Simulated assay, not measured.
Amino acid sequence: MSLDRREIAKDVVQQSTEAAIASAGHVVAILFETARKITTEFGAFGTEIFEIAESSRRAGHDGTDAADSKP
């Protein structure tokens, strides 16, 4: 039993569509992973900024306390 042209064409369209969907899925997965990594880096940067601000605040208080205790 041989396949007729319509069935061959249907198979070509089906396989092409499946390949396109699989490729699109891979691209979307890459984009989501990239967005997740960028978000993580921004979060780490924000944490560093808060830590720097806190250290600066503590250093300012320590300097003020030391200056106040000098004769």
Rank of each mutant, 00 (worst) to 15 (best):
G25K: 03
Q14E: 07
A53R: 06
I38Y: 05
S2V: 06
P71T: 04
I38K: 07
V12F: 07
F42H: 10
I30E: 14
A67R: 03
V13P: 01
I49R: 11
I38M: 05
A67V: 00
D62M: 01
V28P: 02
Q15V: 15
S16G: 14
T40H: 03
V28T: 13
K37N: 04
A22P: 07
F42C: 08
S2P: 00
L3N: 02
G46L: 06
G43Q: 14
D11R: 10
I8M: 08
G46V: 14
T47H: 12
I21Q: 07
S23Q: 15
G43T: 04
S23R: 13
S55F: 05
A24P: 00
V27Y: 02
F42N: 06
E7D: 12
R58H: 03
P71G: 02
T40F: 09
D4H: 04
S55Y: 10
E7S: 01
A24S: 14
E7F: 01
T40Y: 01
D11K: 10
T34S: 13
A24W: 04
M1S: 09
T64Q: 07
A67H: 01
T34N: 13
S2Y: 03
D65E: 14
A19M: 07
R6V: 03
A20G: 00
Q14Y: 05
P71I: 08
D68V: 12
A20I: 01
K10W: 14
A24R: 07
Q14L: 10
V27G: 02
E48A: 06
G43Y: 04
Q14I: 06
V27A: 11
G60P: 00
A66L: 07
A19E: 01
I38R: 00
D62F: 08
T47Q: 12
T39G: 06
E54L: 09
M1A: 13
D65L: 10
R36A: 14
S2Q: 01
T34H: 08
R57E: 05
E48N: 11
E48P: 00
V28A: 14
E54P: 04
T64V: 04
R6F: 08
T40E: 11
R5L: 13
K70R: 10
T64H: 09
E18M: 02
M1G: 09
S2I: 04
D4T: 01
D65Y: 01
I30T: 15
G25H: 01
R36K: 15
E33Y: 10
T47F: 07
A66S: 06
V28E: 12
A29F: 05
F50P: 04
E33H: 11
R5Q: 11
P71M: 03
T17N: 06
F45K: 13
E7A: 09
M1F: 12
S55D: 15
A35K: 13
H26W: 15
D65W: 06
D65G: 05
F32A: 14
T17K: 10
D11S: 12
V28I: 15
A20L: 04
H26S: 15
S69A: 15
V13D: 09
S56N: 15
L3S: 10
T47S: 12
G60W: 04
H26F: 13
T39A: 13
V12R: 04
A44M: 03
